[in-house]
Design a protein around this nucleic acid. Structure first.
Length: 431
RNA sequence: UCCUCGAUAGCUCAGCGGUAGAGCAUCCGGCUGUUAACCGGAGGGUCGUAGGUUCGAAUCCUACUCGGGGAGCCA
């Protein structure tokens, strides 16, 4: 009796009769033999139907199949050196489950606009499937690292009363008779959670109503935000480099086939081991000036600056201690130099830009109160955040890592939209 | 918001003042080892929308619509 299995497991059934349930990816045929490429979500395998072996009826059913028709295939597993995965199925029977007439996405080239309009079908293609698998492994690796390091996952709210930073544009919605906004960061809630549980992290979607349309921006994207009580700035950076390098190592060890499908040059990832190089903001400015850039101490970096800074190294680089004036209100000033804050951005190599932003947070009540006043923050809405500094406040640090940017970098993607199953970009909410 | 590029067959594109084209997809036929298979044939179009220039506009001009890439901002 034939055993039901998957393409990924096929090697353990050599010589045996199996049943595969999937979809027709492609078909090549001649008068008396047909090659059916069947995918089942775990992989693609070629099923061979020979006319004078399967009989006229089964052969005719194969002939009628079209691209992406769903099928249940029965056949015998054979090792074959010509097959990309080393095995083929000698087809004995096939059933059509659901027909597929005029499937829009062909095996030829398509434009971005067309593919994005058909994202619900585009994700069936091997490359997109591979990217989604890598994304899932990145998420798994992040959770495994943090869970194994004594962190507790805490889920912050998506609906919030106001902005944490005031600068970025928020999605405004009605909350019955009140105004509410979609979260742009769970950080403040994670600071509260860190005082309750020590080391915590969140993993979820975040929203920015910025009219950004570049290969590095999505309107809705996922962030992982760890927050650690009693962690200093240096503790924070040491954690980040262990974290990022363990994620890369996990993907290299578990996604070899997927990275090959995507065409990623994995040698570029093999250097990504701790420690990561560090540059102070001061050094970075001086370095850029020496290279002919018209940039002054106090300016923020633009995308080309970041690319050039990161281009010096074969692994991510920390740029730390930015001017207080250009950074978020909650960042802890350097005690030796209050004009800079204890923060760092982690820039990925190969032009992928900032994947992490993090800092030590202000823990002193009076300093935080001062910052609220300086930044004209709505104290009423964030009374609770201020109160964290009133009862048992401790030095603490945290960071946020962008999931899609991380996946785009690890996979070597042209655009972060491919790293999200149903990306939300400027001017695109469908499908 | 600004800069820049684009819109022609189901898809990817060519045509850039003078009868609307190719490859792929689809349909029909051929082929027992194909790898984005190949070979032969067929069907398939208000050239994004609205104006304008011209004897004549897919082609030149203007506006609009919808997208792509980038800047700023950020992860």
């Amino acid at each position: 009796m034939a055993t039901q299995t998957t393409v990924a497991q096929i090697g353990t059934y050599e010589g045996q009769a199996v049943i595969l349930r999937g979809w027709l990816y492609n078909k090549r045929s001649s008068g008396k033999i047909q090659f059916l490429q069947v995918r089942d979500g775990t992989g693609v395998i070629q099923c061979v139907a020979v006319r004078n072996e399967v009989g006229e009826d089964v052969f005719a059913r194969c002939s009628e199949l079209t691209q992406e028709a769903s099928v249940i295939v029965e056949g015998v597993v054979r090792a074959d050196a010509r097959a990309p995965i080393g095995y083929e199925v000698q087809l004995t029977d096939i059933q059509l489950v659901g027909e597929s007439v005029d499937y829009p996405i062909t095996l030829k080239e398509h434009g971005v606009d067309f593919l994005m309009d058909h994202r619900h079908l585009w994700i069936r293609t091997p490359r997109q499937r591979a990217i989604l698998k890598v994304r899932a492994e990145v998420e798994r690796a992040m959770q495994a690292f943090l869970d194994g390091d004594g962190f507790t996952r805490v889920d912050p709210p998506v609906l919030t009363p106001s902005s944490a930073e005031g600068t970025t544009e928020l999605f405004h919605i009605k909350y019955f008779d009140e105004d509410a906004y979609l979260t742009q960061s769970g950080q403040m809630y994670m600071e509260a959670a860190a005082m309750a549980l020590g080391k915590v992290y969140s993993m979820g979607p975040t929203f920015r109503a910025e009219r950004s349309k570049t290969r590095r921006h999505l309107i809705e994207f996922w962030m992982i935000e760890p927050e650690m009580a009693y962690y200093t700035h240096d503790d924070n950076l040491a954690l980040q480099e262990r974290f990022v390098s363990s994620v890369v190592e996990h993907v290299l060890n578990h996604c070899e086939a997927e990275l090959a499908t995507i065409g990623r040059d994995v040698s570029k990832l093999q250097h990504v081991t701790a420690p990561f190089p560090r540059m102070s903001y001061d050094e970075a400015i001086a370095w850029l000036q020496k290279r002919g850039h018209d940039i002054q101490w106090g300016d923020d970096f633009g995308a080309p600056h970041e690319t050039e800074l990161a281009g010096q190294f074969d692994r991510p680089v920390f740029i730390e201690r930015y001017p207080t004036a250009i950074k978020a209100f909650y960042m802890q000033p350097d005690p030796e130099r209050p004009e800079v804050v204890l923060c760092a951005d982690l820039l990925a190599p190969e032009g992928y830009g900032e994947i992490i932003g993090g800092s030590q947070r202000i823990h002193d009540f009076h300093l935080m109160e001062e910052r609220f006043a300086q930044h004209h923050l709505p104290e009423a809405a964030y009374q609770w955040y201020l109160e964290l500094r009133k009862w048992g406040s401790v030095p603490h640090s945290g960071f946020g890592i962008g999931l899609e940017r991380t996946v785009a970098w690890i996979c070597g993607l042209e655009h972060v939209r491919e790293a999200n199953p149903f990306p939300r970009t400027l001017y695109r909410l469908y499908p």
